[in-house]
Write a protein that binds this DNA or RNA. Sequence first.
DNA 1: GTTATGATTTACT
DNA 2: GTAAATCATAACG
Length: 201
Amino acid sequence: MTPEMKIPPSYFRSDDVVALARDLLGKKLCTMINGQYSAAMITETEAYRSWGDRACHAHLNRRTKRTEVMFSSGGVAYVYLCYGIHHLFNIVTNSADIPEAVLIRAAEPLEGRNMMEYRRNKKAHEPSLSAGPGNMSKALGITTSLNNASLQGPHVWLEEHLVTAPGDIAVSTRIGVDYAGGDALHPWRFYLKSSRYVSRR
DNA sequence: GTTATGATTTACT
DNA sequence: GTAAATCATAACG
């Protein structure tokens, strides 16, 4: 990895979290956990907005201990434990005091595949290894200890990888947010059509 | 102090 | 298709 490949903080401070979620497809997500390096290409994302989105934890500036990190300036990790079992990895975006984030839902293993197989106890060619937010986080070794971590490393960071063809990007409504009523209908989920590493349902 | 619930996954009927 | 697993957080009292 060359330093120039690492994505700078300014990238995450965009005021359009939906456009950012689409642009993150194809980027490389890298982790260094306990000295073990893993990297995967992002294949599925969802955007969560501060305003007009009841599915977002911090909508309408609801500030709590848990959502506090989302009020940071863009470029840090928001890791949250869901259903007592699954670690969900988000990228905080926009400026300070504007709580928006992109949920990384799936990724395709690139490097450190042996580590991912060990952590998931599955083969790397199985899409379920890293498709789905909980699975992806576990494969990369992401836990809540990375909450509030800088995306400039040393434990987690992003790199430029490949330029995604516009025709390969698909859009749909988000998953698992039915409780948000009408806000569940926003087409803020993006994924790569050509990738097998995409969650189902 | 208690209680309800979820940005999910997995196994089972 | 349906349900259980399992716990930190948030909203109570």
